[in-house]
C-alpha cells in the first residue's frame, strides 16, 4: 500500500472511523503522519479503503486502468474493460472491487488476477503462501519455492543492472535449489531431508 498523501512511501499507519454507518479509512506513511500530528486533521475528507487498491490499479498502466488522463476516450475504454472484468462465478465487478476493496468470492482471485497480482507485491512479502494448510499440515517444499521465487526476482534486477557476476552466483543458487526442490517432491515419503539447508551452504 502506498501513502495517500505523498503517494511515495509505503503506508504503514491506518486510520479508520465510522460516520453515519459509513466507514472512512486512511492509509498513510509515518512521515506524513508526523507532519499531520494534530489528530483531527487526519480525519478530514472522504477516505476509502478501496482507494489504495484503486490507486495501485491506476498506476499500473494496464489497458483500461489508465484513469489518470482526463480524456473521454479513456473513460470509454474503462467502461468497456469494466464490463469484461466481471467474476463469472459471483458476478462481482472490477468497479465493485475498487469501491469496496473487497472480493466477492474465492473465484474472484482468478477473475481479477492481473489487478491483484501487482497489488500483492506492495501488500505482502511474496506471492506464495508458506504457512499452514487446513487441518494444520505444513508443506516444507513451499518455503523452498518461495526462496526460488525471490531469487528469480533478484536475478532479473541484477541482469537489468548488468551485474552479471553477481547474477551468475544467484543463477547457480537457483539451479541448486530447483534440483533440491525436485528431490523434495520426489522423495516426500522419506522424512528428514533438508535440501534447502544443504544447497544454501554452497
Amino acid at each position: 500500500m502506498i501513502c495517500e498523501i505523498c503517494k511515495k512511501n509505503p503506508a504503514t499507519i491506518h486510520i479508520q472511523e465510522i460516520v453515519d454507518n459509513q466507514k472512512k479509512s486512511m492509509h498513510i506513511c509515518a512521515e506524513c503522519a508526523e507532519k499531520k500530528s494534530a489528530p483531527q486533521l487526519l480525519f478530514d475528507g472522504n477516505f476509502n479503503l478501496a482507494e489504495v487498491l484503486y490507486n495501485i490499479t491506476e498506476h499500473m498502466g494496464l489497458p483500461g486502468f489508465e484513469l489518470g488522463a482526463s480524456s473521454k476516450k479513456n473513460e470509454e475504454t474503462e467502461t468497456q474493460e469494466q464490463a469484461k472484468a466481471t467474476c463469472m462465478k459471483c458476478g462481482w465487478t472490477l468497479s465493485q472491487l475498487r469501491k469496496t476493496g473487497r472480493l466477492g468470492c474465492s473465484q474472484c482471485y482468478k477473475s481479477f488476477r492481473d489487478v491483484l497480482d501487482d497489488a500483492f507485491d506492495t501488500m505482502h512479502r511474496g506471492k506464495l503462501h508458506v504457512g499452514k494448510k487446513p487441518g494444520g499440515k505444513i508443506d516444507e517444499s513451499s518455503t523452498v519455492m518461495l526462496e526460488i521465487m525471490n531469487m528469480k526476482k533478484e536475478l532479473e534486477e541484477l541482469v537489468q543492472r548488468e551485474e552479471y557476476e553477481k547474477a551468475a552466483v544467484v543463477r547457480d543458487k537457483i539451479n541448486a535449489l530447483t534440483k533440491g526442490e525436485k528431490k523434495v517432491t520426489n522423495s516426500k515419503q522419506h522424512k528428514g531431508i533438508r535440501k534447502s539447508g544443504k544447497s544454501k551452504k554452497k
Binding site: L116, H124, K127, H129, P134
Partner: peptide, 25 residues
C-alpha cells in the same frame, strides 16, 4: 473447526479472504 468446515484454500495463495490484504495466512 477445519475438521468439519471445508475452508476456501488455494495451494499458491493460501487461505482466500474477502480483502486481498488478508490472503495467505
Amino acid at each position: 473447526l477445519s475438521s468439519s468446515l471445508p475452508y476456501s484454500f488455494d495451494e499458491q495463495l493460501g487461505f482466500l479472504t474477502s480483502c486481498p490484504t488478508n490472503v495467505g495466512t
